[in-house]
Design a protein around this nucleic acid. Structure first.
Lengths: 138, 138
DNA sequence: CTCCGTGCAAATGGTTTGCATCTTA
DNA sequence: TAAGATGCAAACCATTTGCACGGAG
């Protein structure tokens, strides 16, 4: 996505175009390093010395809503502890946050295909599928 | 792992056996729900009302060192942002937090098998594989 | 001119640390 | 009795929120 496409997308969705916003979007959208908010802040600061973390976080929220980026972290920043290695899919409702597990031979077999292609031996995994659950669809 | 094995393992590694420690270990080692520290605290509190979060965290650290549990979270509690919104596997080092993407037709095909069995149409997904990367193994 | 965006400052909340007291071995 | 464990309170720190000012449309 180039600068013009980005600006169009923002305008179409009713968002204003500011220099900070453009700088942050360009930085994160072109990155291949899964940057942290701090890394983005550092990079963008060079051209916009007065920029704030608040704006970085607000802009990242915007990009999430436009589905241009994914946030990589666990639910509410808490750590989880895993005593078993069984493979399952977490089916997570994006509205109410309810999580149900789905475990089956198919899941294990398909996941094994993937990791054998990857040529790695993971010490754990997490498979999430995001949905809107039946209750929330109404 | 039963209670006797747990106690032996603790003693062999020079750790003392206390009621709180046993209760926390039993709780997390028997759990199938990837519990948070808070969930463990709540459960253990019922039998040990005076227990503290500090002890829960200390005991979880101990179990990590004994490699009886894995900690599931990203890089030192920071959030990372990923502009790659297509189906891919995040390969995440549990020591240094480095993340690399793996994207291939196999990944897409196997994941499609899984979600067609699930009979859901997810609005998004996340596939993580946790590893210790080459640099950190040394 | 109006509304949205920006950014300072303060709040939030999961996790960690300092330290005094208590327990295990 | 000594080394280690516990738990209160305070610190830590990435992220979020309240709010007043400023710039885009």
């Amino acid at each position: 996505m180039n600068k013009e496409q980005l600006i169009s997308m923002l305008r179409e969705n009713g968002h204003k175009v500011t220099p900070q916003r453009i700088a942050i979007c360009e930085e994160v959208l072109s990155s291949k390093e899964h940057p942290t908010a701090e890394a983005i802040f550092e990079k963008v600061s060079k051209r916009h010395p007065a920029i704030s973390f608040t704006t970085v976080y607000h802009t990242l929220d915007l990009l999430k809503k436009l589905e241009l980026i994914h946030e990589i972290r666990f639910d509410n920043r808490v750590t989880r502890y895993d005593p078993n290695t069984s493979v399952h899919v977490n089916i997570i409702c994006q509205k109410c946050g309810k999580i149900s597990d789905y475990e089956s031979d198919t899941v294990k077999i398909q996941w094994n295909h993937i990791i054998s292609e990857l040529k790695i031996q993971p010490i754990g995994q997490r498979l999430d599928a995001y949905v809107i659950c039946g209750d929330c669809k109404e």
